[in-house]
């Protein structure tokens, strides 16, 4: 089923929308959830909450990219679940590492300009990503948005873990510098 048809089902308040979303994007959302919560039980819960979240958000939302829309819901739910300490023990703390890494580096010893809106910061981040070579950008997003481990990324791109780790360190530093230059960080 095409995304537009699924979205139309949501707008028509037809519960088949959830079934269709599950059929098409459960694996995608599951992979996002598992990277964060690490256990299948918790990931399943995140998925169930994702469909509920989509049901509540559409309408009024009309996603342009349904997969990412659902993925963002899953990611938020999973992160909130871990941070609220509602996950099973296995991997819970470890799972936060990639997401903490990014904010740790950016916020280390600096404060975020109070007047800076999230949307403004997002715009700087998008500009930063746009300037990166495609492969580096994909690696950066794989690590810090999808929460993939170094080994996974290294395997996919044919690099050593050390090289991936070093590349990510440099990219984080570049993003931090960019945010400082734009006055987001002080």
């Amino acid at each position: 089923m095409e995304d537009a048809d699924i979205i139309a089902l949501y707008w028509a308040r037809d519960e088949k929308a959830i079934e269709a979303s599950y059929q098409k994007y459960s694996r995608y959302c599951m992979s996002i959830a598992r990277n964060i919560v690490q256990t299948d039980e918790d990931a399943e819960e995140c998925l169930n909450d994702t469909w509920m979240g989509a049901w509540e958000a559409i309408p009024p939302a009309r996603p342009t990219v349904l997969s990412v829309f659902l993925g963002k819901i899953t990611r938020n739910i999973a992160l909130n679940k871990v941070r609220a300490g509602k996950c099973l023990k296995r991997g819970g703390e470890k799972a936060m590492l990639p997401f903490d890494e990014l904010s740790d580096t950016i916020c280390d010893g600096r404060s975020v300009e109070e007047k800076a809106e999230s949307s403004e910061i997002t715009a700087v981040m998008n500009a930063f990503l746009a300037e990166l070579p495609e492969e580096k950008r994909k690696i950066f997003v794989s690590r810090y948005w999808y929460g993939e481990e170094y080994g996974e990324i290294a395997g996919r791109y044919g690099y050593s873990r050390g090289k991936v780790a070093m590349m990510l360190e440099r990219l984080k530093a570049k993003l931090r510098d960019r945010l400082m230059k734009e006055g987001i960080l002080q």
Partner: peptide
């Protein structure tokens, strides 16, 4: 802000 980066990069 990071969670809201452009869909195209996530995709």
């Amino acid at each position: 802000a990071w969670n809201a980066i452009d869909d195209k990069y996530i995709l």
